[in-house]
């Protein structure tokens, strides 16, 4: 652009074109690109937000894996949450999507009902489920009274608290993945099913040999997105248990939040966020690899 010669009108058009992108680019650089690079750097420092960051090399990473049992524990808690939630959510979402992909009466009504919780915010969902889980007045109490028992301490017992959060998350998120599966199903051309009809395939064969393989891109997308999302669960845990009781629901985002914004250990929390990033990237690549080789 610095060459000196007569400019064509097209040149000036493209100067305008570049100018159109500048505001968005500046904002993304300041609020996305720079923070990522900075997070990497802060992870190698000790910093309490006041003063200057002190470079301490790999110390944060060593602390995480050697000196601080809370980190590995929260990794395990997050993994249990993800494993407890996702497979059952995929199964229900896929089953409903298959069902709603067929012609049936009241399809639109049912589909809307199963999708509705997606529109409820995490804050409102947590408030509502707090009432449901309440052991004296909640639905929990009413159901248990039917069996002649007192309400279960769902949120107050470390045995059940994570399970309660999983149930809430399942209710809130399932419809979202159902819609992603439905979109995938509707991208499968009818031609394949017509060909299968000609060959006399039964409905199980059609599902196994046409629907499932052709749905693979959507399935992969659902798996990647849902796992990324479940490693970032925060609001219901923050509002309902604060990571308790006794750390039973202290997932990684909760631990990062505590270290950064309660203990002001910015360096240590950043290092943990980097590990979260690495885990999510690794999981995504692993899934892409496993399922790509499955298809191809």
């Amino acid at each position: 652009m610095l060459r000196v010669r007569r400019r064509s009108p097209v040149f000036y058009q493209n100067v305008w074109g570049f100018a159109f992108a500048v505001p968005a680019l500046l904002l993304l650089i300041v609020f996305s690109v720079y923070p990522v690079l900075n997070a990497l750097y802060i992870g190698f420092t000790s910093w309490s937000l006041s003063g200057t960051p002190e470079f301490i090399g790999l110390d944060n990473y060593i602390t995480m894996f050697v000196r601080d049992p809370e980190f590995l524990r929260s990794l395990r808690t997050t993994a249990i949450y993800a494993v407890g939630l996702n497979p059952i959510m995929w199964a229900i979402a896929l089953a409903l999507a298959l069902l709603f992909n067929q012609e049936m009466r009241m399809r639109g009504v049912f589909r809307t009902i199963f999708f509705t919780p997606v529109v409820v915010s995490w804050v409102v969902a947590s408030m509502v489920w707090y009432l449901i889980f309440h052991r004296s007045f909640g639905l929990n109490a009413h159901i248990m009274r039917f069996f002649g028992q007192p309400g279960i301490k769902l949120l107050e017992d470390s045995q059940y608290a994570l399970l309660a959060i999983i149930v809430l998350s399942l209710w809130k998120s399932m419809g979202y993945y159902m819609v992603l599966f439905l979109a995938g199903l509707q991208n499968i051309s009818r031609v394949f099913y017509e060909a299968a009809d000609v060959d006399g395939a039964n409905s199980w064969q059609r599902f196994w040999h046409i629907t499932l393989p052709l749905l693979m891109p959507a399935t992969l997308f659902v798996m990647v997105i849902s796992i990324i999302n479940s490693f970032q669960v925060f609001t219901p845990i923050y509002l309902l248990t604060r990571g308790g009781p006794h750390g039973a629901t202290r997932v990684l985002p909760m631990l990062i939040y505590e270290n950064a914004f309660l203990f002001l250990k910015m360096g240590y929390a950043s290092a943990m966020a980097m590990i979260l990033f690495v885990i999510l990237m690794a999981l995504t690549l692993l899934q892409l690899r496993v399922f790509r080789s499955d298809v191809g």
Binding site: Q13, N14, G17, Y34, V36, Q232, F234, A260, L276
Partner: peptide, 30 residues
């Protein structure tokens, strides 16, 4: 539009798409 560096800039935009919120939240706060 076509201008020098366009594809590079677009790649830069795309590269920020998959960054989890908790990775940037601390520096963003700062």
């Amino acid at each position: 539009f076509t201008y020098r560096g366009r594809d590079l800039l677009f790649a830069l935009v795309l590269s920020t798409m998959m960054i989890p919120f908790y990775v940037v939240v601390i520096p963003l706060y700062i």
